[in-house]
Amino acid sequence: MENNSMTVWQFFVLTLSFLAGTSFFFLPGGLIAVAKQDAWMVPLWAGAAGVMAALIWLKLARQHPGLSIIQICTKVAGKPIGGLFAIMYISYFIQLSVFITRNVGDFMKQTLMPITPLTMFHVMLLVISAYAVVKGIDTIARSSELLFIIMAITFVLIFCMALVAWDWSRFQGSFRMNVWETLKETRYIFGFPFLEALVFLMLFPFVQSKVKRSFILAIVVATLLLSVTTFFTIGVLGVPRASHDTYPLFVIAQEVHVGTFFEHLESTIALILLAAIFIKLSIAYYCSVLGLCQLFRISSRLWVTLALILLISGLSLGYDNVVENIEFSQRYDFEYTLLYSVFIPCLLLFVTWIRKKVKRREGTAS
């Protein structure tokens, strides 16, 4: 394990940026298409489920202080089975990095640079993230502090300027959704972004103190921000339009103008998205590299990091287009992530409880 550490504030910012940064861009359109005027409610129950999952992860981390999920797997389940679980988690971290990388490629190609090959976007972002990974988690944490302030100020300014187009009549027909059908069709929001936060099981050992309070607070704040963003999107664009836009927040930025001075802010939004994706990709990338180093006891991260650039870039071309990417996320992301975020942690907690009970009986007998 590294000697690097994070403050409580840095961990909070890192978690909030991971959860909320990319969700602002990719989730509102799909949620509005399903839940219409009531789409802003969906993140609230998804966030509540995210908090419950976080309590499981925190309980597991408290049972094994100072250990990452990779080390917990090998300690609790032994080398053969625990090693298999560890490889599964590493593969999930790599797959998450692939998904994030493809998201930025699709966004840039569809909105700003349609002729540029996807690989160029992937490699450029991966090289920058790889540099941050080699430098360590403290470098990623400091970068997120700076970028978080810039992103927050930009979002607030754009939201304030876009209020000119606000129309309360766009909420007519609210509170009519079928809760069960909506829950079933929007279940992917549980996986992205809330259950994806299981990657922080790799980072808990780096936090100096108050992990639980900081982690739970970040999930709650991210939930509220995503709900407010969805509500804002409905009020500015309306349900018919927002539900047909892949990136509704980008469309809002395109149409914002104050006189002839503030206009065409979509490039600014694109830069903010790149910053948000950089933070999220760096975390997932770092967890992939750290997991490999811990499992196979590799002392240097450099060559592992460089090798993963080629692997992640290549796998990110597995989708034919952005529609296939979105369809996979909506159909399978929740079930896929549930295995790693709930089932395996609960199994590890159960085995830990059994072992402690057996040790206690042996100690009493002796």
Results as ranks from 00 to 15, higher is better:
Phe328Thr: 10
Gln63Thr: 00
Ala152Met: 08
Ile56Cys: 02
Glu2Pro: 05
Ile140Met: 04
Met161Val: 14
Lys135Trp: 04
Val207Arg: 09
Thr22Asn: 14
Met108Asn: 11
Thr22Ser: 07
Leu55Cys: 06
Thr154Arg: 07
His122Glu: 08
Leu217Ser: 13
Met151Arg: 00
Phe93Val: 03
Phe296His: 00
Val8Ser: 10
Leu183Lys: 03
Ser300Val: 13
Ile69Asn: 05
Leu274Thr: 05
Glu335Phe: 14
Arg176His: 05
Leu311Arg: 05
Asp245Arg: 13
Arg360Ala: 08
Arg142Ile: 02
Leu31Tyr: 14
Lys210Met: 09
Leu306Thr: 04
Val304Tyr: 06
Thr116Val: 14
Ala130Asn: 04
Trp9His: 01
Trp168Ala: 14
Asp245Gln: 15
Lys359Tyr: 09
Thr15Gln: 10
Leu281Asp: 07
Ile72Pro: 07
Glu255Lys: 14
Gly78Ile: 06
Cys73Arg: 02
Gln294Cys: 09
Ala307Asp: 07
Ile269Trp: 02
Val42Asp: 11
Val323Ile: 14
Met6Leu: 03
Phe25Met: 05
Ile234Val: 11
Phe334Lys: 07
Glu2Ser: 07
Arg102Pro: 07
Leu271Glu: 13
Trp353Glu: 13
Pro240Cys: 10
Val8Gln: 09
Ala242Met: 05
Gly30Val: 02
Pro193His: 08
Lys357Val: 05
Asp167Phe: 01
Leu201Asn: 15
Pro240Trp: 02
Lys135Gln: 12
Leu112Ala: 11
Lys357Trp: 12
Leu157Ala: 15
Asn103Gly: 15
Asn4Asp: 00
Trp9Thr: 10
Thr246Leu: 02
Asn325Ala: 01
Thr139Ser: 14
Ser341Glu: 00
Met151Trp: 00
Phe215Ala: 02
Phe107Ser: 14
Glu196Phe: 07
Ile219Leu: 11
Leu201Ser: 15
Cys73Ile: 04
